[in-house]
Design a protein around this nucleic acid. Structure first.
Lengths: 237, 237
DNA sequence: CATGGACAACTGCCATAGCAGTTGGCAGCG
DNA sequence: CGCTGCCAACTGCTATGGCAGTTGTCCATG
Protein backbone atom coordinates (compact mmCIF):
# COMPACT_ATOMS: atom_id res chain seq x y z
CA UNK A 1 0.00 0.00 0.00
CA UNK A 2 1.99 2.96 -1.27
CA UNK A 3 0.26 5.93 0.28
CA UNK A 4 -2.88 7.52 1.67
CA UNK A 5 -2.91 6.75 5.34
CA UNK A 6 -4.44 9.22 7.74
CA UNK A 7 -3.45 9.74 11.36
CA UNK A 8 -5.74 7.19 12.97
CA UNK A 9 -5.08 4.41 10.50
CA UNK A 10 -8.08 5.02 8.32
CA UNK A 11 -7.34 4.27 4.72
CA UNK A 12 -8.22 7.12 2.40
CA UNK A 13 -10.17 6.08 -0.69
CA UNK A 14 -7.98 6.12 -3.75
CA UNK A 15 -8.92 8.15 -6.75
CA UNK A 16 -9.40 5.21 -9.09
CA UNK A 17 -9.24 7.29 -12.21
CA UNK A 18 -5.55 7.83 -11.77
CA UNK A 19 -5.00 4.11 -11.41
CA UNK A 20 -6.40 3.31 -14.83
CA UNK A 21 -3.77 2.58 -17.41
CA UNK A 22 -3.25 5.00 -20.24
CA UNK A 23 -4.29 2.32 -22.69
CA UNK A 24 -7.59 1.85 -20.91
CA UNK A 25 -8.22 5.56 -20.70
CA UNK A 26 -7.38 6.00 -24.38
CA UNK A 27 -9.75 3.16 -25.24
CA UNK A 28 -12.67 4.72 -23.39
CA UNK A 29 -11.89 8.19 -24.61
CA UNK A 30 -11.68 7.19 -28.24
CA UNK A 31 -14.84 5.11 -28.01
CA UNK A 32 -16.61 8.08 -26.52
CA UNK A 33 -15.33 10.33 -29.29
CA UNK A 34 -16.59 7.91 -31.92
CA UNK A 35 -20.09 7.49 -30.52
CA UNK A 36 -20.35 11.22 -29.87
CA UNK A 37 -19.52 11.94 -33.45
CA UNK A 38 -16.29 13.77 -32.63
CA UNK A 39 -14.59 11.17 -34.78
CA UNK A 40 -17.01 10.64 -37.66
CA UNK A 41 -17.07 7.51 -39.78
CA UNK A 42 -14.33 7.37 -42.37
CA UNK A 43 -12.05 9.62 -40.37
CA UNK A 44 -8.44 8.54 -40.47
CA UNK A 45 -7.04 7.85 -37.02
CA UNK A 46 -3.33 7.17 -36.92
CA UNK A 47 -1.52 6.03 -33.82
CA UNK A 48 0.96 8.88 -33.85
CA UNK A 49 -1.41 11.75 -34.43
CA UNK A 50 -3.80 10.51 -31.75
CA UNK A 51 -0.87 10.00 -29.42
CA UNK A 52 0.26 13.59 -29.73
CA UNK A 53 -3.31 14.84 -29.35
CA UNK A 54 -3.76 12.80 -26.19
CA UNK A 55 -0.35 13.75 -24.91
CA UNK A 56 0.81 10.16 -24.53
CA UNK A 57 2.95 7.68 -26.41
CA UNK A 58 1.82 5.77 -29.46
CA UNK A 59 1.87 2.41 -27.74
CA UNK A 60 -1.22 2.74 -25.52
CA UNK A 61 -3.06 4.31 -28.43
CA UNK A 62 -2.22 1.32 -30.55
CA UNK A 63 -3.64 -1.00 -27.92
CA UNK A 64 -6.80 1.05 -27.74
CA UNK A 65 -7.18 0.92 -31.51
CA UNK A 66 -6.72 -2.85 -31.51
CA UNK A 67 -9.47 -3.22 -28.95
CA UNK A 68 -11.73 -0.83 -30.83
CA UNK A 69 -11.09 -2.90 -33.91
CA UNK A 70 -12.23 -5.99 -32.03
CA UNK A 71 -15.37 -4.06 -31.14
CA UNK A 72 -15.84 -3.28 -34.80
CA UNK A 73 -15.63 0.47 -34.31
CA UNK A 74 -12.54 0.95 -36.44
CA UNK A 75 -11.04 -0.97 -39.30
CA UNK A 76 -7.35 -1.00 -40.04
CA UNK A 77 -5.73 -1.82 -43.33
CA UNK A 78 -2.25 -3.11 -42.56
CA UNK A 79 0.46 -0.59 -43.38
CA UNK A 80 -2.11 1.73 -44.86
CA UNK A 81 -4.06 3.27 -42.07
CA UNK A 82 -6.87 2.99 -39.57
CA UNK A 83 -10.24 4.61 -40.12
CA UNK A 84 -13.42 4.86 -38.09
CA UNK A 85 -15.78 2.17 -39.31
CA UNK A 86 -18.69 3.14 -41.48
CA UNK A 87 -21.95 2.45 -39.74
CA UNK A 88 -24.84 2.36 -42.13
CA UNK A 89 -28.45 2.10 -41.02
CA UNK A 90 -28.42 -1.59 -41.92
CA UNK A 91 -25.43 -2.27 -39.68
CA UNK A 92 -27.03 -0.31 -36.87
CA UNK A 93 -30.20 -2.31 -37.24
CA UNK A 94 -28.29 -5.59 -37.07
CA UNK A 95 -26.44 -4.52 -33.97
CA UNK A 96 -29.72 -3.47 -32.46
CA UNK A 97 -31.22 -6.91 -32.96
CA UNK A 98 -28.09 -8.49 -31.51
CA UNK A 99 -28.30 -6.22 -28.53
CA UNK A 100 -31.96 -7.05 -28.02
CA UNK A 101 -31.11 -10.74 -27.90
CA UNK A 102 -28.22 -10.23 -25.48
CA UNK A 103 -30.23 -7.97 -23.22
CA UNK A 104 -32.82 -10.71 -23.16
CA UNK A 105 -30.29 -13.28 -22.02
CA UNK A 106 -29.00 -10.83 -19.44
CA UNK A 107 -32.50 -10.38 -18.07
CA UNK A 108 -32.97 -14.14 -17.91
CA UNK A 109 -29.74 -14.60 -16.00
CA UNK A 110 -30.58 -11.68 -13.74
CA UNK A 111 -33.93 -13.26 -12.97
CA UNK A 112 -32.07 -16.28 -11.60
CA UNK A 113 -29.34 -14.45 -9.73
CA UNK A 114 -30.38 -10.98 -8.64
CA UNK A 115 -30.59 -10.62 -4.89
CA UNK A 116 -32.93 -8.56 -2.75
CA UNK A 117 -30.53 -5.61 -2.61
CA UNK A 118 -30.44 -5.42 -6.37
CA UNK A 119 -34.21 -5.63 -6.62
CA UNK A 120 -34.64 -2.81 -4.14
CA UNK A 121 -32.19 -0.72 -6.13
CA UNK A 122 -34.23 -1.39 -9.22
CA UNK A 123 -37.28 -0.25 -7.32
CA UNK A 124 -35.51 2.98 -6.46
CA UNK A 125 -34.63 3.51 -10.09
CA UNK A 126 -38.23 2.86 -11.05
CA UNK A 127 -39.30 5.57 -8.64
CA UNK A 128 -36.91 8.00 -10.27
CA UNK A 129 -38.25 6.98 -13.65
CA UNK A 130 -41.77 7.68 -12.47
CA UNK A 131 -40.98 11.22 -11.42
CA UNK A 132 -38.86 11.73 -14.51
CA UNK A 133 -41.72 10.57 -16.70
CA UNK A 134 -44.18 12.91 -15.02
CA UNK A 135 -41.77 15.80 -15.43
CA UNK A 136 -40.80 14.73 -18.97
CA UNK A 137 -37.18 15.13 -17.92
CA UNK A 138 -35.42 13.32 -20.73
CA UNK A 139 -31.93 13.72 -19.31
CA UNK A 140 -32.90 12.26 -15.96
CA UNK A 141 -34.73 9.45 -17.73
CA UNK A 142 -31.75 8.62 -19.87
CA UNK A 143 -29.54 8.50 -16.81
CA UNK A 144 -31.97 6.30 -14.91
CA UNK A 145 -32.36 4.09 -17.94
CA UNK A 146 -28.61 3.71 -18.16
CA UNK A 147 -28.38 2.67 -14.53
CA UNK A 148 -31.36 0.35 -14.91
CA UNK A 149 -29.76 -1.72 -17.61
CA UNK A 150 -26.26 -1.51 -16.17
CA UNK A 151 -27.58 -2.88 -12.90
CA UNK A 152 -29.17 -5.83 -14.63
CA UNK A 153 -25.99 -6.46 -16.59
CA UNK A 154 -23.90 -6.52 -13.45
CA UNK A 155 -26.41 -8.78 -11.75
CA UNK A 156 -25.60 -11.47 -14.28
CA UNK A 157 -22.01 -11.48 -13.09
CA UNK A 158 -20.96 -12.41 -16.60
CA UNK A 159 -18.03 -10.37 -17.87
CA UNK A 160 -18.53 -11.36 -21.49
CA UNK A 161 -22.11 -10.14 -21.37
CA UNK A 162 -21.17 -6.93 -19.61
CA UNK A 163 -18.45 -6.09 -22.09
CA UNK A 164 -20.46 -6.96 -25.16
CA UNK A 165 -23.48 -5.01 -24.04
CA UNK A 166 -21.23 -2.10 -23.19
CA UNK A 167 -20.04 -1.91 -26.77
CA UNK A 168 -23.53 -2.42 -28.11
CA UNK A 169 -24.97 0.33 -25.96
CA UNK A 170 -22.26 2.61 -27.31
CA UNK A 171 -23.57 1.96 -30.79
CA UNK A 172 -27.03 2.72 -29.53
CA UNK A 173 -25.87 6.14 -28.42
CA UNK A 174 -24.38 6.62 -31.86
CA UNK A 175 -27.73 5.88 -33.43
CA UNK A 176 -29.40 8.35 -31.13
CA UNK A 177 -26.86 11.04 -31.93
CA UNK A 178 -27.76 10.78 -35.57
CA UNK A 179 -31.03 12.29 -34.56
CA UNK A 180 -33.29 10.21 -36.69
CA UNK A 181 -35.89 10.08 -34.00
CA UNK A 182 -38.60 9.14 -36.39
CA UNK A 183 -41.27 8.65 -33.79
CA UNK A 184 -41.95 10.60 -30.63
CA UNK A 185 -40.99 8.73 -27.50
CA UNK A 186 -43.81 7.24 -25.53
CA UNK A 187 -42.60 7.86 -22.01
CA UNK A 188 -45.42 6.23 -20.06
CA UNK A 189 -45.15 3.10 -22.16
CA UNK A 190 -41.42 2.84 -21.49
CA UNK A 191 -42.13 3.16 -17.78
CA UNK A 192 -44.72 0.40 -17.93
CA UNK A 193 -42.27 -1.84 -19.74
CA UNK A 194 -39.56 -1.23 -17.20
CA UNK A 195 -41.98 -2.07 -14.43
CA UNK A 196 -43.06 -5.23 -16.18
CA UNK A 197 -39.42 -6.30 -16.48
CA UNK A 198 -38.80 -5.74 -12.79
CA UNK A 199 -41.94 -7.70 -12.00
CA UNK A 200 -40.61 -10.62 -14.01
CA UNK A 201 -37.29 -10.40 -12.20
CA UNK A 202 -39.10 -10.45 -8.86
CA UNK A 203 -40.98 -13.54 -9.92
CA UNK A 204 -37.66 -15.12 -10.87
CA UNK A 205 -39.13 -16.04 -14.22
CA UNK A 206 -36.20 -16.12 -16.69
CA UNK A 207 -38.28 -16.79 -19.79
CA UNK A 208 -40.71 -14.01 -19.04
CA UNK A 209 -37.95 -11.57 -18.15
CA UNK A 210 -36.16 -12.37 -21.37
CA UNK A 211 -39.24 -11.94 -23.53
CA UNK A 212 -40.18 -8.66 -21.92
CA UNK A 213 -36.67 -7.27 -22.03
CA UNK A 214 -36.19 -8.22 -25.63
CA UNK A 215 -39.49 -6.72 -26.62
CA UNK A 216 -38.67 -3.57 -24.74
CA UNK A 217 -35.34 -3.11 -26.48
CA UNK A 218 -36.79 -3.83 -29.89
CA UNK A 219 -39.58 -1.34 -29.37
CA UNK A 220 -37.20 1.34 -28.17
CA UNK A 221 -35.05 0.74 -31.23
CA UNK A 222 -38.09 1.21 -33.43
CA UNK A 223 -38.97 4.53 -31.83
CA UNK A 224 -35.35 5.56 -32.23
CA UNK A 225 -35.63 4.85 -35.90
CA UNK A 226 -32.79 2.35 -36.07
CA UNK A 227 -35.14 -0.58 -36.55
CA UNK A 228 -37.42 -0.14 -39.54
CA UNK A 229 -40.98 -1.30 -39.22
CA UNK A 230 -43.40 -2.19 -36.56
CA UNK A 231 -44.07 -5.50 -38.29
CA UNK A 232 -47.55 -6.40 -37.20
CA UNK A 233 -47.56 -9.26 -34.76
CA UNK A 234 -49.25 -12.11 -36.51
CA UNK A 235 -50.65 -9.94 -39.29
CA UNK A 236 -53.32 -12.35 -40.42
CA UNK A 237 -54.13 -15.91 -39.86
CA UNK B 1 2.48 -5.65 -54.11
CA UNK B 2 5.70 -6.51 -52.35
CA UNK B 3 6.29 -10.10 -53.32
CA UNK B 4 4.94 -13.35 -54.68
CA UNK B 5 4.83 -12.71 -58.38
CA UNK B 6 5.57 -15.52 -60.75
CA UNK B 7 6.93 -15.13 -64.24
CA UNK B 8 3.65 -14.86 -66.09
CA UNK B 9 2.13 -12.35 -63.73
CA UNK B 10 0.08 -14.84 -61.85
CA UNK B 11 -0.28 -13.87 -58.25
CA UNK B 12 0.87 -16.66 -56.05
CA UNK B 13 -1.55 -17.39 -53.23
CA UNK B 14 -0.05 -15.70 -50.23
CA UNK B 15 0.83 -17.95 -47.39
CA UNK B 16 -1.50 -15.92 -45.18
CA UNK B 17 0.33 -17.00 -42.11
CA UNK B 18 3.32 -14.89 -43.04
CA UNK B 19 1.23 -11.81 -43.70
CA UNK B 20 -0.47 -11.85 -40.33
CA UNK B 21 1.02 -9.59 -37.74
CA UNK B 22 2.85 -11.13 -34.83
CA UNK B 23 0.23 -9.76 -32.47
CA UNK B 24 -2.53 -11.45 -34.41
CA UNK B 25 -0.65 -14.73 -34.55
CA UNK B 26 0.10 -14.57 -30.85
CA UNK B 27 -3.57 -13.90 -30.15
CA UNK B 28 -4.77 -16.93 -32.08
CA UNK B 29 -2.02 -19.13 -30.78
CA UNK B 30 -2.65 -18.27 -27.16
CA UNK B 31 -6.39 -18.66 -27.56
CA UNK B 32 -5.82 -22.06 -29.07
CA UNK B 33 -3.54 -23.02 -26.21
CA UNK B 34 -6.17 -21.99 -23.69
CA UNK B 35 -9.08 -23.86 -25.23
CA UNK B 36 -6.89 -26.89 -25.83
CA UNK B 37 -5.94 -26.96 -22.19
CA UNK B 38 -2.26 -26.34 -22.84
CA UNK B 39 -2.67 -23.27 -20.68
CA UNK B 40 -5.02 -24.43 -17.92
CA UNK B 41 -7.14 -22.07 -15.86
CA UNK B 42 -5.23 -20.27 -13.15
CA UNK B 43 -1.96 -20.54 -15.02
CA UNK B 44 0.16 -17.43 -14.79
CA UNK B 45 0.96 -15.96 -18.18
CA UNK B 46 3.43 -13.12 -18.12
CA UNK B 47 4.23 -11.05 -21.15
CA UNK B 48 7.94 -11.67 -20.97
CA UNK B 49 7.90 -15.41 -20.46
CA UNK B 50 5.39 -15.91 -23.25
CA UNK B 51 7.43 -13.62 -25.45
CA UNK B 52 10.58 -15.70 -25.04
CA UNK B 53 8.63 -18.92 -25.55
CA UNK B 54 7.11 -17.57 -28.76
CA UNK B 55 10.43 -16.12 -29.87
CA UNK B 56 9.09 -12.60 -30.24
CA UNK B 57 9.05 -9.37 -28.31
CA UNK B 58 6.82 -8.67 -25.36
CA UNK B 59 4.83 -6.02 -27.17
CA UNK B 60 2.75 -8.20 -29.51
CA UNK B 61 2.20 -10.61 -26.66
CA UNK B 62 0.84 -7.80 -24.55
CA UNK B 63 -1.58 -6.85 -27.30
CA UNK B 64 -2.74 -10.43 -27.56
CA UNK B 65 -3.28 -10.62 -23.81
CA UNK B 66 -5.31 -7.41 -23.86
CA UNK B 67 -7.54 -8.83 -26.56
CA UNK B 68 -7.87 -12.12 -24.73
CA UNK B 69 -8.84 -10.15 -21.67
CA UNK B 70 -11.57 -8.45 -23.66
CA UNK B 71 -12.74 -11.92 -24.64
CA UNK B 72 -12.78 -12.86 -20.98
CA UNK B 73 -10.23 -15.63 -21.39
CA UNK B 74 -7.62 -14.08 -19.11
CA UNK B 75 -7.82 -11.66 -16.23
CA UNK B 76 -4.99 -9.31 -15.35
CA UNK B 77 -4.39 -7.67 -12.02
CA UNK B 78 -2.47 -4.47 -12.69
CA UNK B 79 1.18 -4.72 -11.71
CA UNK B 80 0.57 -8.16 -10.28
CA UNK B 81 0.16 -10.57 -13.09
CA UNK B 82 -2.08 -12.11 -15.71
CA UNK B 83 -3.71 -15.49 -15.28
CA UNK B 84 -5.89 -17.69 -17.44
CA UNK B 85 -9.49 -17.09 -16.39
CA UNK B 86 -11.20 -19.70 -14.28
CA UNK B 87 -14.08 -21.21 -16.16
CA UNK B 88 -16.46 -22.99 -13.86
CA UNK B 89 -19.39 -25.04 -15.09
CA UNK B 90 -21.71 -22.16 -14.23
CA UNK B 91 -19.72 -19.73 -16.38
CA UNK B 92 -19.64 -22.22 -19.21
CA UNK B 93 -23.38 -22.65 -18.99
CA UNK B 94 -23.95 -18.90 -19.13
CA UNK B 95 -21.72 -18.53 -22.15
CA UNK B 96 -23.57 -21.40 -23.76
CA UNK B 97 -26.90 -19.65 -23.34
CA UNK B 98 -25.40 -16.45 -24.70
CA UNK B 99 -24.04 -18.32 -27.67
CA UNK B 100 -27.39 -19.95 -28.31
CA UNK B 101 -29.04 -16.54 -28.44
CA UNK B 102 -26.40 -15.11 -30.76
CA UNK B 103 -26.47 -18.11 -33.06
CA UNK B 104 -30.20 -17.59 -33.23
CA UNK B 105 -29.80 -13.99 -34.32
CA UNK B 106 -27.19 -15.06 -36.84
CA UNK B 107 -29.60 -17.59 -38.30
CA UNK B 108 -32.31 -14.94 -38.51
CA UNK B 109 -30.01 -12.54 -40.33
CA UNK B 110 -28.78 -15.31 -42.59
CA UNK B 111 -32.35 -16.17 -43.49
CA UNK B 112 -32.73 -12.64 -44.82
CA UNK B 113 -29.40 -12.34 -46.58
CA UNK B 114 -28.00 -15.68 -47.65
CA UNK B 115 -27.84 -16.06 -51.42
CA UNK B 116 -28.31 -19.10 -53.59
CA UNK B 117 -24.61 -19.89 -53.63
CA UNK B 118 -24.52 -20.03 -49.86
CA UNK B 119 -27.59 -22.23 -49.74
CA UNK B 120 -26.08 -24.67 -52.19
CA UNK B 121 -22.92 -24.79 -50.12
CA UNK B 122 -25.03 -25.58 -47.10
CA UNK B 123 -26.65 -28.37 -49.07
CA UNK B 124 -23.21 -29.76 -49.84
CA UNK B 125 -22.30 -29.67 -46.18
CA UNK B 126 -25.54 -31.43 -45.33
CA UNK B 127 -24.61 -34.19 -47.75
CA UNK B 128 -21.27 -34.61 -46.01
CA UNK B 129 -23.07 -34.68 -42.70
CA UNK B 130 -25.33 -37.42 -43.96
CA UNK B 131 -22.48 -39.68 -44.95
CA UNK B 132 -20.60 -38.78 -41.79
CA UNK B 133 -23.61 -39.69 -39.70
CA UNK B 134 -24.03 -43.05 -41.43
CA UNK B 135 -20.34 -43.79 -40.90
CA UNK B 136 -20.40 -42.38 -37.37
CA UNK B 137 -17.27 -40.43 -38.29
CA UNK B 138 -17.12 -37.93 -35.45
CA UNK B 139 -14.10 -36.04 -36.75
CA UNK B 140 -15.66 -35.48 -40.14
CA UNK B 141 -18.90 -34.45 -38.47
CA UNK B 142 -17.16 -31.95 -36.24
CA UNK B 143 -15.42 -30.45 -39.23
CA UNK B 144 -18.63 -30.24 -41.23
CA UNK B 145 -20.42 -28.77 -38.24
CA UNK B 146 -17.75 -26.14 -37.92
CA UNK B 147 -18.10 -25.15 -41.56
CA UNK B 148 -21.88 -25.21 -41.29
CA UNK B 149 -22.02 -22.62 -38.56
CA UNK B 150 -19.12 -20.58 -39.90
CA UNK B 151 -20.89 -20.31 -43.23
CA UNK B 152 -24.04 -19.02 -41.57
CA UNK B 153 -22.03 -16.57 -39.53
CA UNK B 154 -20.33 -15.19 -42.59
CA UNK B 155 -23.64 -14.96 -44.40
CA UNK B 156 -24.78 -12.37 -41.89
CA UNK B 157 -21.95 -10.10 -42.96
CA UNK B 158 -21.83 -8.77 -39.42
CA UNK B 159 -18.32 -8.54 -38.03
CA UNK B 160 -19.44 -8.14 -34.45
CA UNK B 161 -21.47 -11.32 -34.66
CA UNK B 162 -18.64 -13.21 -36.35
CA UNK B 163 -16.08 -12.17 -33.77
CA UNK B 164 -18.29 -12.80 -30.78
CA UNK B 165 -19.38 -16.21 -31.98
CA UNK B 166 -15.76 -17.04 -32.72
CA UNK B 167 -14.85 -16.46 -29.09
CA UNK B 168 -17.92 -18.29 -27.88
CA UNK B 169 -17.22 -21.30 -30.04
CA UNK B 170 -13.74 -21.39 -28.56
CA UNK B 171 -15.29 -21.72 -25.15
CA UNK B 172 -17.47 -24.47 -26.51
CA UNK B 173 -14.37 -26.38 -27.53
CA UNK B 174 -13.03 -25.87 -24.05
CA UNK B 175 -16.14 -27.43 -22.58
CA UNK B 176 -15.80 -30.36 -24.92
CA UNK B 177 -12.16 -30.85 -23.99
CA UNK B 178 -13.18 -31.28 -20.41
CA UNK B 179 -14.76 -34.48 -21.54
CA UNK B 180 -17.89 -34.30 -19.48
CA UNK B 181 -19.90 -35.85 -22.22
CA UNK B 182 -22.74 -36.79 -19.95
CA UNK B 183 -25.01 -38.07 -22.64
CA UNK B 184 -24.22 -39.97 -25.81
CA UNK B 185 -24.55 -37.88 -28.93
CA UNK B 186 -27.63 -38.48 -30.99
CA UNK B 187 -26.16 -38.17 -34.46
CA UNK B 188 -29.32 -38.65 -36.53
CA UNK B 189 -31.13 -36.05 -34.44
CA UNK B 190 -28.39 -33.51 -35.01
CA UNK B 191 -28.61 -34.17 -38.73
CA UNK B 192 -32.37 -33.64 -38.68
CA UNK B 193 -31.93 -30.37 -36.83
CA UNK B 194 -29.34 -29.12 -39.29
CA UNK B 195 -31.67 -29.97 -42.15
CA UNK B 196 -34.53 -28.17 -40.46
CA UNK B 197 -32.39 -25.08 -40.06
CA UNK B 198 -31.43 -25.09 -43.72
CA UNK B 199 -35.08 -25.50 -44.62
CA UNK B 200 -35.93 -22.41 -42.62
CA UNK B 201 -33.15 -20.50 -44.32
CA UNK B 202 -34.49 -21.56 -47.71
CA UNK B 203 -37.91 -20.31 -46.75
CA UNK B 204 -36.35 -17.02 -45.72
CA UNK B 205 -38.17 -17.24 -42.43
CA UNK B 206 -36.03 -15.39 -39.86
CA UNK B 207 -38.16 -16.20 -36.83
CA UNK B 208 -38.30 -19.89 -37.65
CA UNK B 209 -34.59 -20.07 -38.41
CA UNK B 210 -33.79 -18.35 -35.14
CA UNK B 211 -35.99 -20.64 -33.08
CA UNK B 212 -34.61 -23.78 -34.69
CA UNK B 213 -31.01 -22.68 -34.44
CA UNK B 214 -31.34 -21.65 -30.84
CA UNK B 215 -33.02 -24.90 -29.93
CA UNK B 216 -30.34 -26.83 -31.76
CA UNK B 217 -27.52 -25.12 -29.91
CA UNK B 218 -29.21 -25.49 -26.55
CA UNK B 219 -29.81 -29.18 -27.13
CA UNK B 220 -26.23 -29.77 -28.23
CA UNK B 221 -25.04 -28.00 -25.12
CA UNK B 222 -27.19 -30.28 -23.01
CA UNK B 223 -25.76 -33.40 -24.59
CA UNK B 224 -22.30 -31.95 -24.06
CA UNK B 225 -23.09 -31.60 -20.41
CA UNK B 226 -22.43 -27.89 -20.18
CA UNK B 227 -26.12 -27.08 -19.82
CA UNK B 228 -27.76 -28.87 -16.92
CA UNK B 229 -31.26 -30.16 -17.39
CA UNK B 230 -33.67 -30.78 -20.12
CA UNK B 231 -36.28 -28.64 -18.37
CA UNK B 232 -39.54 -30.03 -19.56
CA UNK B 233 -41.24 -27.75 -21.99
CA UNK B 234 -44.45 -26.65 -20.36
CA UNK B 235 -44.26 -29.22 -17.59
CA UNK B 236 -47.91 -29.22 -16.73
CA UNK B 237 -50.87 -27.14 -17.56
C1' DC C 1 1.09 17.04 -72.96
C1' DA C 2 1.25 12.44 -71.18
C1' DT C 3 3.75 8.83 -68.73
C1' DG C 4 6.89 6.57 -65.77
C1' DG C 5 9.99 6.43 -61.91
C1' DA C 6 12.17 8.03 -57.83
C1' DC C 7 11.99 10.42 -53.47
C1' DA C 8 9.84 12.09 -49.28
C1' DA C 9 6.26 11.78 -46.06
C1' DC C 10 3.35 9.19 -44.20
C1' DT C 11 1.37 4.47 -42.21
C1' DG C 12 1.21 0.22 -38.99
C1' DC C 13 4.32 -2.81 -36.74
C1' DC C 14 7.91 -4.40 -33.68
C1' DA C 15 12.04 -4.54 -30.49
C1' DT C 16 14.45 -2.43 -26.73
C1' DA C 17 14.95 -0.11 -22.44
C1' DG C 18 13.49 1.49 -18.43
C1' DC C 19 9.85 2.99 -14.91
C1' DA C 20 6.91 1.90 -10.96
C1' DG C 21 4.45 -1.13 -8.20
C1' DT C 22 4.11 -5.96 -6.17
C1' DT C 23 5.80 -10.17 -4.06
C1' DG C 24 8.57 -13.48 -1.66
C1' DG C 25 12.29 -14.50 1.08
C1' DC C 26 15.97 -13.65 4.10
C1' DA C 27 18.50 -11.39 7.47
C1' DG C 28 18.29 -9.01 11.92
C1' DC C 29 16.13 -7.61 15.95
C1' DG C 30 12.96 -8.30 19.87
C1' DC D 1 10.77 -18.63 18.23
C1' DG D 2 8.24 -14.76 16.09
C1' DC D 3 7.94 -10.51 14.05
C1' DT D 4 9.57 -6.47 11.35
C1' DG D 5 11.85 -4.33 7.63
C1' DC D 6 14.56 -4.39 3.70
C1' DC D 7 16.10 -6.13 -0.84
C1' DA D 8 16.15 -8.60 -5.12
C1' DA D 9 13.39 -10.58 -8.52
C1' DC D 10 9.57 -10.44 -10.53
C1' DT D 11 5.13 -8.07 -12.70
C1' DG D 12 2.52 -4.86 -16.00
C1' DC D 13 3.07 -0.48 -18.22
C1' DT D 14 4.98 3.23 -21.12
C1' DA D 15 8.26 5.78 -23.96
C1' DT D 16 11.55 5.80 -27.68
C1' DG D 17 13.55 4.47 -31.88
C1' DG D 18 13.57 2.35 -36.01
C1' DC D 19 11.98 -1.02 -39.76
C1' DA D 20 9.17 -2.04 -43.77
C1' DG D 21 5.46 -1.15 -46.67
C1' DT D 22 2.25 2.37 -48.81
C1' DT D 23 1.01 6.69 -51.02
C1' DG D 24 1.23 10.95 -53.17
C1' DT D 25 3.96 14.38 -55.38
C1' DC D 26 7.32 16.18 -58.43
C1' DC D 27 10.65 15.95 -61.86
C1' DA D 28 12.70 13.91 -65.91
C1' DT D 29 11.81 11.66 -70.10
C1' DG D 30 9.51 10.22 -74.37
Amino acid sequence: MPAAKTALGRIAPLAEEDTLSLGERAYRRLRECIVQGVLPAGRKVSERSLATQLGISAQPVREALRRLEQDGMVVTLPRRGTVVAEMGPAQLAELGRIRAALEGVAAALAAERMDAAGLSRLAAILARMKSGTEAADHDALDEANEEFHALIHRATGNLFLIRSLGSLRAYDNLGRHRAIGSQPRDLPKALREHRAIVAALRRRDPALAEARMRGHILRSLVTNGVLPPPPRRRPAR
